[in-house]
Computed example of a mutant assay.
Amino acid sequence: MEVTTIGFDADDTLWQNETFFRITQDRFAGLLADHADPDHLMERLLAAERRNLGHYGFGIKGFVLSMIETAIEVTDGRVPATVIAKLLEDGREMLRHPVDLLEGAEDAVRALAQSHTLVLITKGDLLDQERKLAESGLGDLFDGIEIVSDKTPDTYLRAFSAHGDGAGRALMVGNSMKSDVLPALAAGAWGVFCPSEMEWALERAQAPEDAPRFRRIATLSELPPLVADLG
Rank of each mutant, 00 (worst) to 15 (best):
E203V: 03
M172P: 10
I60E: 03
P80T: 06
M42D: 13
F20D: 14
A159E: 03
F58I: 09
G124S: 09
L32I: 05
L182H: 02
I6H: 02
E146W: 04
D125P: 04
G174Y: 09
A29P: 02
D9S: 08
D107K: 09
L118F: 03
H116K: 12
D229N: 02
T4L: 12
T4Y: 02
M177W: 03
F193Y: 15
L138Y: 00
E103V: 02
E203T: 14
G164N: 04
E49P: 03
L220M: 00
A81E: 15
H97D: 05
D128C: 08
E18H: 10
T5G: 05
A184N: 08
A47N: 12
T13D: 08
T82Q: 14
R204K: 12
L95V: 09
S196E: 06
V119Y: 06
V109S: 02
P225C: 06
P38V: 08
R27D: 10
A186V: 04
Q114A: 14
D210Q: 15
S115T: 15
S161E: 14
A159K: 06
M1E: 01
S196W: 01
A10N: 03
R27I: 06
H55G: 00
L126Y: 12
T24H: 05
F58Y: 15
A48D: 07
A184F: 04
D39L: 11
E93F: 13
Q25C: 09
L127M: 13
G91M: 10
E222K: 07
S149T: 06
M1I: 05
R50I: 07
G57S: 02
F8D: 05
D165A: 11
S196D: 11
R204C: 10
A47D: 13
I68W: 05
G54W: 01
E197V: 10
G104N: 00
E43M: 09
D34C: 12
L46R: 11
S149G: 13
D210L: 15
I217Y: 03
E89H: 13
G59D: 04
I68Q: 11
A189P: 05
N17W: 09
L65E: 13
L126A: 13
A108R: 02
D11A: 05
F142E: 01
R51K: 11
S136M: 04
F160T: 10
D100M: 11
T13I: 09
L226Q: 06
S176L: 02
D100C: 10
P225W: 02
L14I: 07
A167S: 14
N175K: 04
F20M: 12
D26I: 05
V83S: 08
V3H: 07
R22V: 15
L101R: 03
A170H: 09
A105S: 08
G91K: 11
P208V: 12
L202E: 07
S161L: 07
L202C: 01
R50G: 00
A36R: 14
A187F: 12
K123I: 06
V83E: 11
A228H: 13
V181T: 03
G166A: 07
L88Y: 09
V227Y: 01
F160L: 11
D39R: 15
A47Y: 01
L112A: 08
V192R: 06
I6M: 03
L220Q: 00
L118T: 02
R44N: 12
P195V: 09
E2S: 14
A105K: 04
T155I: 08
A170C: 12
G59R: 07
E2D: 06
Q129N: 14
L171Q: 07
S149D: 10
L126C: 02
T70L: 11
R44C: 14
L133Y: 08
V181M: 07
W15V: 02
R204I: 10
